[in-house]
Amino acid sequence: MNIIVPIKQVTDLVEELEVDASGKDLNREWLKYKINEFDDHALEEALCLKEESGANVMAIALDSADIEKSLYTAAAKGADKLIKVTGDFGEAIPSHVAAKALANVLESLEYDLILTGVQAADDRDGQVAVLLAHYLGLPHVSVVTGVNLQDGKAIVHKEYSGGLMGEFEVDLPGVLGIQAARQTPRYAPVSRVRQAMRSTELEEMPAGDVSVAVGTTVQRMFKPETSDGAQMIEGSAEDVANQILNILSERGLKQ
């Protein structure tokens, strides 16, 4: 069983985000990046499957700032192979371009299952998992929270609203957009990441022709309006608590 896990980095959303001078993109000068949390869950699920029934897990990512750190972290956690896809992508890579680049590289690789994050905070033109599946002509299920492998097929749980789930049987190879792994993604200490940098080979493969039309252009980026935002309660923790309790009393919400 060969499992491929495409990962990417997104801006750390804890940071304050600013619009750049063009008015169309983030000011990226001071931005911190981290692995897309859903990709981290996809990697975790792949590693759980490996531990359960044996598999080769390969993490693959498009070249971008600091991506090697995320790849080596994947190796430190248990990924067997790393691939960096090289090409002239720029900083804000549209999902269609990313999916096409991954599809080009994957055509020369052998695999049974592709697990990647169901979405990312910046995929304006759609989710990579489904785009990739259709460039490769493979079946796909998104918003997956459970994966079991049986007789060369994947039995997956897909989340709907209201806590409902659909169960599907998917022929392999297939692509699953992972919402959450079966357990909290594991942590790799820095010492293990450093060790992985020395012991794991990072293969580079060119993206090939990624000239797909996104078909829309960004006109502007702006912070959502906050005019009818919250009335802020200020003061010491005690003052704040008193004010909240007054609000609750006024509304008859205090027992």
Binding site: H96, A99, S142, E159, G215
Partner: peptide, 22 residues
């Protein structure tokens, strides 16, 4: 939504139509 996510991007690739998400 969960269902729509599996459809929108699929149609975008197969029909070669632009997609704007979220």
């Amino acid at each position: 939504t969960s269902m729509g996510m599996d459809l929108a991007a699929a149609l975008s690739v197969d029909l070669d139509l632009p997609l704007v998400a979220y």
